[in-house]
Design a protein around this nucleic acid. Structure first.
Lengths: 128, 128
DNA sequence: ACGCATCGAATGCAATTGCATTTAATACTG
DNA sequence: CAGTATTAAATGCAATTGCATTCGATGCGT
């Protein structure tokens, strides 16, 4: 026999899993199809776009995308390859880098943002 | 200027992302370290263990793990390789398969379950 | 100033994933 | 009943991920 609070925990976790999968998959599909970027790429661009000068330390990005340090590093590499960001030396601490939003990156973000919000509005509402 | 409801949506999504990442990462680490299985493997075993005869159609599993059909197929293949499940022909519809829990699989599930619940209790409580 | 622990980032590598396709079996339609 | 469409599952393949390691730069204690 399973205690009620345990059952509750499991149900909450399964709900979280289902909601996350639903929103994430919908976002991934629409952002990819309409703007050629994924969820993590969008979150990165958004973080940069709302920063002071469109730049931030590489470290800050791992928190935003909930990815390992190495995956975040490669994510930045892909964004740079696609011309959406640039890496810049950090003079104060030359171990680190600045990730800087390019004009193209800011443009892409502006285009994708309405799509992002629309998908959120559609998928976050009707499951609770 | 961003509308309040839009801001709310984004915050809810980021909260969902953060909560999911926190619980998922904690589960993945502990289940892997203590029982040598991942989150998806555990969910699969749990689905089978609570089935009537420890078996279910391959299809049902994709819903449980929120994975693509191909990824679910390979997940079953890994579990079979590790001796935790077996594939059985389905006589009624010979396109499909039954995934059947082995004794070893049921044992592994029983061992992992307390860990799973403990991590949920620890991680789902303190972020809200 | 020297030596050593620590830190930020990049990279080799194996594992997992999704998409597209394939294969086999079943269901439908005329 | 033949022929086609659909379904369940498996597989080739490229892309993404995390772990462990590496490399250079910083900080800290003596």
């Amino acid at each position: 026999m399973m205690s009620s609070s345990e059952q509750q925990l499991v149900e909450e976790w399964h709900g979280l899993l289902a909601r996350h999968a639903a929103v994430h998959n919908a976002l991934e599909r629409e952002l990819q199809a309409r703007h050629d970027i994924g969820v993590n790429e969008f979150e990165t661009l958004e973080r940069l776009a709302s920063s002071d000068h469109g730049k931030c330390r590489g470290q800050d990005l791992t928190d935003v995308v909930h990815l390992s340090q190495s995956a975040a590093s490669r994510l930045v590499a892909r964004l740079e390859r696609d011309g959406l960001v640039e890496r810049a030396m950090c003079d104060l601490d030359r171990r680190g880098i600045f990730v800087v939003l390019t004009d193209e990156g800011r443009k892409r973000y502006s285009e994708a943002k309405p799509t992002h919000r629309a998908v959120l509005a559609r998928t976050l509402r009707d499951d609770r």
